[in-house]
Amino acid sequence: MEERKSGVQQIDYTLLFLLFVLMCFSLLAIYSGSGQYFSDDPTYYVKRQIIWFIAGVIIMSGVMVIDYDMYKNFSIPLYGIGVVLLLLVAYSPLGVFRNGSQRWLDLGPAEVQPSEFMKIFLIIAMAHLLYRVTMNRTTKDLKSDLIIVAKVFAIGLPPFFLILTQPDLGTALVIASIMVTMLLMSGVAWRILFVLGIGAVSGILSLVYLHNNNFELFSKIIASHQLDRIYGWLDPYEHQGSYGYQLVNALRGIGSGQLYGSGFMQGVQTQSDRIPEIHTDFIFTVIGEEFGFLGATILIVTYFLLFYRMVIIALSCNNLFGTYLVSGVIGLLVFQVFQNIAMTIGLMPITGLALPFISYGGSALLTNMIAMGIVLNVNIRTKHYMFETEESSL
């Protein structure tokens, strides 16, 4: 028996509350970390972030209104638009080169970063692909699994390599994370995934070998600034005067926060302009230093609860397309949270990935709000049944 609920009743208000908590963290951290840049108006970045949040909520609401099943009709055009935009970044005069990379398109009144929106386009395209393959598959064998892997790679690798050549390793790894997460949800045999994992590890070991034995070839694969970041990650204190500077000061700030933090607007590292991009990529330093271990733990637990709710939505959805959509969003957000926090505390190399819903920035925030709109959309249109049995949910 179907339990009928209105769309408003079926909105996941827990998810919305967790988003609100993250927004509060964001505004506090941005205000504290960015006030030093504009002494005449310390609220400059906060006011802009509030505008981005309002725009994001409006767009998220719009995404929730359209039945997510309709996204199938736009999956191929959106994917094609995303690839074309990435090509324009790389090979047209509209591409903007800044800070050693070419990631933006100059559209006159504003600059946009197509790689951010490509994440959403790829999730929709891959969810549609896996839905069609799964629904049409009559037998589950090695051959059919290999076909699924080949098709996922066919649509995932073009944007991966286009973004990698910008160069933007962080976003390219996010694309890879989406691919891996959706492959896991597709039911592909574990032995295939194991072989793919061995291939990835072998690729990393090959790069290490080239670095030690054929540096000329290695330098054609890994850009010099990327190698500097790896050196700064492996031994930041040895290189604290150059490419380890940012990480060393971030570690000092987070370490000085101890249990309760130094207090809002009282962080020595945060307020002294010693950490570049502290209001964007390194915003976790602000939270760790000024709110301490307790504040950082609350933030991480909030993320955990957010992801837990998304997993529940994915598992309870009785439409495979919806399940794949939510799975792609989980892969998108979980990797970014892990990578950003890990790079701030020295567990991973530094990349230009923002902390979702916390870091200052428009393109990344809008992308993440669209992603949350998709998740909420799936939850609203998931039919729940009273006395549901295993057979009735199939």
Rank of each mutant, 00 (worst) to 15 (best):
Tyr91Asn: 15
Leu365Cys: 08
Ala127Glu: 00
Gly288Arg: 07
Gln166Ala: 06
Thr43Glu: 10
Cys24Gly: 11
Ala342Cys: 07
Phe20Tyr: 11
Leu122Ser: 08
Trp104Phe: 07
His279Trp: 04
Leu28Tyr: 11
Lys47Gln: 12
Cys317Ile: 04
Val21Phe: 15
Met64Leu: 09
Ser242Trp: 11
Ala296Gln: 04
Gly331Asn: 04
Val378Glu: 00
Ser34Asp: 01
Gly100Tyr: 03
Asp273His: 14
Asn73Glu: 07
Leu78Thr: 01
Val337Asp: 13
Phe321Asp: 00
Leu164Met: 14
Val326Glu: 01
Gly82Ile: 03
Ile380Val: 13
Val268Ala: 12
Leu294Val: 15
His128Ala: 14
Leu122Gly: 01
Ile178Asp: 00
Lys143Glu: 14
Gly170Asp: 03
Arg4Asp: 07
Met369Trp: 12
Leu210Ser: 06
Thr181Asp: 03
Gln258Asp: 15
Gly244Thr: 05
Asp235Glu: 07
Met343Asn: 06
Arg252Asn: 14
Thr351Asn: 08
Ile278His: 00
Ser206Val: 09
Val334Asn: 00
Val201Thr: 10
Ala223His: 13
Val65Gln: 13
Ile155Asn: 06
Ile30Ala: 07
Glu388Ile: 12
Val133Ser: 06
Arg98Thr: 10
Tyr31Ser: 15
Phe117Leu: 11
Val133Ala: 06
Arg132Thr: 15
Pro356Asp: 09
Leu183Ser: 03
Ser6Tyr: 12
Lys383Met: 08
Glu2Gly: 03
Leu105Asn: 07
Pro109Asp: 12
Gly328Asp: 03
Ala172Thr: 09
Ile192Ala: 03
Val83Ser: 01
Ser262Ala: 12
Leu366Ala: 03
Phe321Leu: 03
Ile230Glu: 05
Ser202Cys: 14
Ser242Asp: 15
Arg191Pro: 05
Val286Cys: 05
Thr344Leu: 07
Thr134Glu: 13
Tyr68Asp: 03
Ile59Asp: 00
Thr285Pro: 06
Ala127Gln: 04
Gln9Pro: 04
Leu247Val: 09
Arg4His: 15
His279Ser: 10
Arg252Trp: 13
Gln271Phe: 00
Ala314Val: 02
Thr139Pro: 00
Leu88Ser: 00
Tyr71Ile: 02
Gly100Phe: 05
Asn249Lys: 10
Pro159Lys: 08
Ile300Asn: 02
Leu394Ser: 14
Ile298Met: 11
Arg381Tyr: 12
Ser242Ile: 08
Met60Cys: 13
Leu87Pro: 00
Ile221Arg: 11
Gly255Ala: 12
Gly288Lys: 08
Leu325Val: 01
Gln269Ala: 08
Ile370Asn: 01
Glu388Arg: 06
Tyr237Met: 12
Met185Leu: 13
Asp273Gly: 11
Thr285His: 02
Ala223Asn: 13
Cys24Thr: 12
Asp40Trp: 08
Ser39Glu: 12
Ile380Glu: 00
Ser144Gly: 04
Leu305Pro: 10
Phe264Lys: 08
Trp52Leu: 04
Asp40Val: 14
Leu247Tyr: 08
Gly292Ser: 07
Ser32Val: 05
Leu299Tyr: 02
Ala296Leu: 02
Leu347Tyr: 09
Met185Phe: 14
Thr302His: 02
Arg229Cys: 07
Gly257Leu: 02
Leu173His: 04
Lys72Leu: 06
Asn73Lys: 14
Thr367Ser: 13
Phe117Glu: 01
Thr171Ile: 08
Gly328Met: 02
Gln226Met: 09
Asn214Gln: 11
Gly7Asp: 07
Glu388Gly: 09
Arg137Cys: 02
Leu94Thr: 05
Gln240Ile: 08
Gln9Val: 10
Pro114Tyr: 06
Arg252Glu: 10
